[in-house]
């Protein structure tokens, strides 16, 4: 089971934990990424997330399928990513992985967040306390082949 959502809706971690319950799985790993109050010494008020949503959801699903092929087809993943303005302390991304045992749940969760950061068409603009803002640099997607 794979559930993906890229949207402006706030991430409800309690709802996520309840929805993902599975008595066949003894391990649940929840990773939550939240907006930090400082970045490179600058005071951050919020981060505005931009996403090419249809492609982002396809890429995230593909990453989860890859994780199932590596650590087991029975693993279940719930991946939520925010768009729009997310204030300091709020969750911007949540990845919940459930598995029979903890090892594959931990490894799959780590794989998904690391791949998300370099493959999903999502961007962030930091909005600083002093009123300035800046699009952050990232990882180039490959389109130059062929």
């Amino acid at each position: 089971m794979i559930v993906i959502e890229v949207s402006a809706k706030p991430i409800d971690l309690t709802e996520l934990a309840l929805a993902s319950s599975d008595t066949a799985h003894g391990a649940t790993v929840l990773f939550v990424g939240a907006v930090r109050e400082t970045n490179f010494g600058r005071s951050v008020r919020a981060v505005a997330y931009d996403a090419f949503e249809p492609l982002a959801e396809k890429v995230l699903r593909k990453i989860c399928v890859e994780a199932q092929s590596k650590w087991g087809a029975s693993l279940r993943f719930f991946v939520f990513h925010r768009t729009g303005e997310v204030t300091v302390g709020e969750a911007s991304v949540a990845i919940l992985a459930t598995a029979t045992h903890r090892d594959e749940a931990y490894q799959a969760s780590r794989y998904i967040i690391e791949q998300l950061k370099i493959r999903a068409p999502i961007w962030k603009k930091e909005i600083y306390v002093d009123g300035e803002s800046e699009w952050l640099k990232g990882h180039a997607l490959c389109g130059h082949a062929g």
Binding site: F52, R119, A120, I122, K137, G138, L141
Partner: peptide, 23 residues
């Protein structure tokens, strides 16, 4: 993602994707 050699058709809409940084 489209490769550089991909031929475009009249009226097509494509997205330009700068380097990504989700999470």
């Amino acid at each position: 993602v489209l490769i550089d050699a991909q031929v475009l058709r009249d009226g097509t809409t494509v997205a330009v994707l700068p380097p990504v940084c989700g999470g």
